[in-house]
């Protein structure tokens, strides 16, 4: 019971990271494919300004996922990190490069260097979700079983590769939808059209990959396939499909709303996956109950999370509220230079 609750919290954290982090990675993806310096200038401009300055908040979701894994299901954590060593190590390197590239590009003035850092940022935005997706694919296909040590077959197989590609495509989809909304907000109709088209393309790619993916799960992990095509799992998949189609419609004119439906589409797929592999953490070799850690810490973990929601919820709400009211704005050069010549400088 307690373990079940923690498993659901874990799934929620995975979904939150997939959506929050996904938007970020997606922006990086479109940065990568925006074309040469000239051609890509305007899309990149939008990406730069839409890239949220608090991506660290999204990173924290990934940390939650790991903490929930090792405190809630220590054996599961050990199994995943032993079997999926290489993709996870590469994902970690990707995360550092991404952070570094992002932090470096902005303050660099020379074009050549900016391009280099920009490329590092963009490539790692592609690589990181791919490897994280591949690790998930390894779990879903039951390959990351306890006792399995790292080897190429464990993750370089069709289901992991498809899962990795699917993760990249999903982030591209999320990124394009959010950027469409940003373009609208910044009142740039050309960019709105540009990213709308890309959201549609990404959605088609996601659809194709999902179908291929279903095919491979059919062959390699019939347990998950069964779960996805029956009962609650099927229902969630269908709902996700509805949300995805709604997104495709909403990006025309109502891109603000499309953001919510696109997030719903991704989150629902993740819930479908979780539902499909009930009661297993690693299908057919490790159940939630078998992997669960000691009961007291699990109860405390739930308690800590409840307290945290109470503590973090209001500030988070406040952040969004201040933000939508336009009360949050970066300091300008003039502010920190103390020139006070700028008309906008507050007279505090």
């Amino acid at each position: 019971m307690t373990a079940g609750v923690v498993a659901w919290i874990l799934l929620v954290a995975v979904a939150a990271y997939a959506c929050g982090g996904g938007v970020d990675y997606g922006a990086g993806f479109w940065d990568l494919v925006a074309g040469g310096t000239q051609r890509g200038e305007r899309p990149r401009w939008l990406i730069d300004h839409a890239m949220e300055p608090v991506w660290e908040v999204n990173n924290v979701w990934l940390i939650f996922v790991f903490i929930l894994m090792w405190t809630g299901f220590p054996v599961f954590f050990e199994a995943v990190f032993s079997a999926m060593w290489l993709p996870l190590a590469l994902a970690a390197v990707g995360l550092v490069l991404r952070g570094a590239g992002f932090a470096l590009r902005k303050p660099t003035t020379r074009l050549a260097r900016r391009r280099l850092y920009g490329a590092v940022f963009a490539v790692s935005s592609l690589v990181t979700p791919f490897f994280l997706g591949a690790a998930i694919g390894g779990v879903a296909s039951g390959r990351a079983a306890p006792g399995v040590t790292a080897s190429a077959e464990v993750w370089a197989n069709s289901s992991s590769v498809i899962a990795g590609l699917l993760a990249v495509a999903a982030t591209a989809f999320l990124g394009a939808v959010f950027l469409t909304a940003d373009a609208r907000r910044f009142d740039a109709p050309d960019l709105e059209k540009y990213f709308r088209l890309r959201s549609w393309c990404a959605l088609v790619v996601v659809g194709v990959l999902a179908l291929i993916g279903l095919g491979t799960t059919h062959r390699h992990s019939s347990y998950v396939y069964h779960g996805l095509t029956h009962g609650l799992g099927l229902l969630l998949v269908l709902l996700s499909l509805v949300a995805a189609l709604a997104t495709a419609g909403l990006v025309v004119g109502k891109a603000g709303w499309a953001r919510f439906t696109s997030v719903a589409a991704v989150a629902l797929v993740i819930f479908a996956w979780g539902t499909a592999q009930r009661p297993y953490l690693v299908p057919t070799s490790l159940t939630v109950q078998q992997a669960a850690g000691a009961t007291r810490p699990l109860q405390w973990l739930i308690l800590v999370f409840l307290i945290a929601i109470v503590l973090v919820g209001p500030p988070l709400f406040l952040l969004y509220r201040l933000d939508t009211r336009g009360l949050l704005e970066a300091q300008t050069e003039a502010d920190v230079e103390g020139g006070s010549t700028h008309p906008d400088t507050p007279s505090t």
Binding site: G20, V23, D24, A27, H49, A50, M51, E52, P53, V54, F178, L179, A181, D182, R185, R259, L319, Y320, D323, T324, G326, L328, E329, A330
Partner: peptide, 9 residues
Amino acid sequence: VAPGSSGAS
């Protein structure tokens, strides 16, 4: 650029 989820700014 305001913080918040990308785009919700």
